[in-house]
């Protein structure tokens, strides 16, 4: 099995990842090789009902999923490249360059 150039570009769009044209032939070749390699799992019969693995030892009991505040060593104002009136300031996008709001 191998993957086509168009499929790689489609997957790259799904992954929100620019792929430069010059890198494409190598990427297609390497991804095909990796997918061929991992496809060997299909030779192993597991059946429809086989139990999938659950991460972590059986003994682990998850704590209650409660949202609690965890104090940061410094606040968003120190963290952000730009911060004003309680908001993160992000760069103007070209789409709004016709006079839209910043």
């Amino acid at each position: 099995m191998s993957i086509s150039r168009e499929e790689v570009l489609h997957i790259a769009r799904l992954a929100e990842l620019d792929v430069v044209e010059e890198a494409l032939p190598t990427l297609v070749e390497q991804m095909s090789r990796i997918l061929d390699y991992v496809a060997q799992l299909n030779r192993l019969p597991t059946g429809e009902t086989a139990r999938p693995y659950v991460a972590g030892p059986d003994a682990i009991t998850l704590r209650a999923d409660e949202v609690k505040p965890w104090p940061l060593a410094f606040g968003p104002k120190q963290l952000a490249p730009a911060f004003r009136d309680g908001f993160f300031v992000v760069p103007r996008l070209e789409a709004f360059d016709d006079g839209g709001a910043a």
Binding site: V38, L41, N42, L44, T46, A50, R51, P52, Y53
Partner: peptide, 8 residues
């Protein structure tokens, strides 16, 4: 499939 093999 990979998660099933992990169980094996």
């Amino acid at each position: 499939k990979a998660q099933q093999v992990r169980a094996l």
